[in-house]
Design a protein around this nucleic acid. Structure first.
Lengths: 130, 130
DNA sequence: GTGCGCCTTCGAGTGCACTCGAAGTCAAGC
DNA sequence: GCTTGACTTCGAGTGCACTCGAAGGCGCAC
């Protein structure tokens, strides 16, 4: 961790630690346009992650781990990068994603119920057997 | 659909229709050992899916769409195929899966909340702007 | 000043779960 | 008897999201 002009910045290893991603994945995301901007560099050429970077990466992580494809995260990043004026589009993208996730959650919950039922059967069987 | 000796059996296309899988996937599952037995064949060599087959395939679908890897579905199928006596193992496998799914659901729900929050922000912004 | 470790880029490799195509067979309708 | 279309097998191809390895550079501790 290094502090310059009142700003705390992290090395890629520290950023990986902080976000739960690997250094490989962080570089991959940057290469693939999922980050808002190229991450700042130290004079040595090493990446220095700012709080803003970390915040954005956490958002990306939330989108990813709710199943949004890389491609779509990139679209969202593109919109945010483009600056003010496309909030409606961003909203639309997020709402569409939310709806998909909600539906997915409901479906998984239903399937889970059926599995729980099966578990109930086995529990009764192994109980009476023991 | 064909009826022989009081039994209704389905062609692979009908089974695909009934389960929401493709014919390719049905053959793939069979090849990969996810089904309990090789599906019966008509004299022509064409597959004939029984009700039992369909029921099992639906169970496989539930496991798969809750995120169980193919490999693990196969393990479960292996246990069921082996017959009576390993109910405890089957139970263990299903319970482990259930717990993973529950945790996954909780995590996704948390991420979803954060996304909803973001949506709330954009909604207020686009409202006041309009 | 040299070893060490973390960093860099680039491109190739991995694992998963399908997904597809080619080439051939079979039964039914015309 | 010939076309049509659904079926068969086999193996290769696809898409996604990483994941890894090689080869080299920089700066700090000793």
């Amino acid at each position: 961790m290094s502090v310059v002009t009142d700003r705390v910045t992290l090395s890629i290893a520290e950023a990986a630690e902080a976000t739960g991603l690997t250094t490989h994945t962080l570089r991959y995301y940057e290469r693939d346009g999922l980050l808002l901007d190229a991450v700042d560099r130290a004079s040595s050429g090493h990446r220095r992650y700012s709080d803003d970077d970390l915040g954005w990466i956490r958002m990306v992580t939330r989108l990813r781990s709710t199943g949004m494809p890389i491609r779509e995260v990139r679209q969202y990043a593109d919109l945010v990068r483009a600056g003010d004026g496309n909030e409606a589009e961003r909203l639309q993208l997020l709402v569409a994603h939310r709806d998909r996730v909600r539906q997915q959650l409901a479906e998984v919950a239903t399937h889970l119920d059926a599995i729980e039922l099966k578990i109930g059967l086995y529990e009764r069987r192994t109980c009476t057997k023991a």
